[in-house]
Design a protein around this nucleic acid. Structure first.
Lengths: 155, 155
DNA sequence: GTTGAAAACGTCTTTCC
DNA sequence: GGAAAGACGTTTTCAAC
């Protein structure tokens, strides 16, 4: 169930990720087409799951989220039950913004956004009491140099 | 120049990050207010930089971005010139979705989204030819368990 | 600070080429 | 598949309370 994506689709997606508040007319002009075909393509891409949530990016600092940690996790348990409970714990914690299962030596990496170091400790204590992990390393971000959700669609 | 944010603002922001395509009426109803005041608050939050870009989240896999790496970087150079050139290199590379300067042992972490392992190698070779780095470790994501830009505003 | 109304604008559908 | 047009809803402004 894969959607076929051509160059015009890619241009539309590129515009939408740059600024999702643009009007159809504006997008149509930029991609060299007109309202109806652009609208049909967007609908197709939405239905195909290529276009997901429409959202606004908020400024974390203004809202008091002043600490960001990358957490490297090693575990000794690799069975399905453990994995399911770990996964659920991550999904339920809103401070976890990203979670990836990794290849190699380190098993998981998390990106955790919290108000301050104390809030991270609360998170950490809660997590290790819920699921067994072998080894945890927290990397504290001093400065967010770059942060984007944009995919580079124009090659 | 900090914007004061109250509970109503937080509810509005929360709704906007959940679904930025909602109408003013809908948001107003949910936060227990009406169109005009909600509109004025949103404008204030936008001007104050609390609300940033409005975007759509695209499905990386559908678009052929099948590899995601977290890159841990150690450097021996810490002078301002080196840092500026490193920063610029990261800003100019669209495959770098996140870049943080860290406290401690590891100096930087990047999140790099590419089409495949070969594309990562191209990126890596280009980066180390542009700026001197002491040590680089790449962590390959096998599975994106969670990925969100939402901040937990309701405490 | 809220309400309500009006004008401008955008979306989505339908019809025709 | 694309253009045009229309019905409908939304945004934005403004005047009154």
């Amino acid at each position: 169930m894969t959607v076929r994506i051509d160059d015009v689709d890619r241009k539309i997606l590129s515009e939408l990720q740059r600024d999702a508040s643009q009007s159809l007319d504006e997008i149509a002009r930029k991609v060299g087409s007109s309202k109806t075909p652009v609208w049909n393509r967007i609908r197709k891409l939405r239905q195909g799951g290529v276009i997901g949530r429409q959202t606004v990016i908020l400024d974390a600092e203004s809202l008091g989220f002043e600490a960001c940690f990358f957490v490297l996790i090693r575990t000794s348990e690799h069975d399905a039950v453990w994995q399911a409970s770990f996964l659920e714990a991550l999904q339920n914690r809103p401070e976890v913004q990203e979670a990836h299962r990794l290849a190699g030596d380190i098993d998981y990496i998390l990106k955790v956004r919290v108000k301050n170091a104390r809030a991270y400790d609360v998170f950490y204590q809660a997590l290790i009491s819920e699921v067994r992990v072998h080894n945890v390393t927290a990397l504290l971000s001093m400065e967010e140099i770059k942060s984007t959700t944009m995919l580079p669609l124009e090659d």
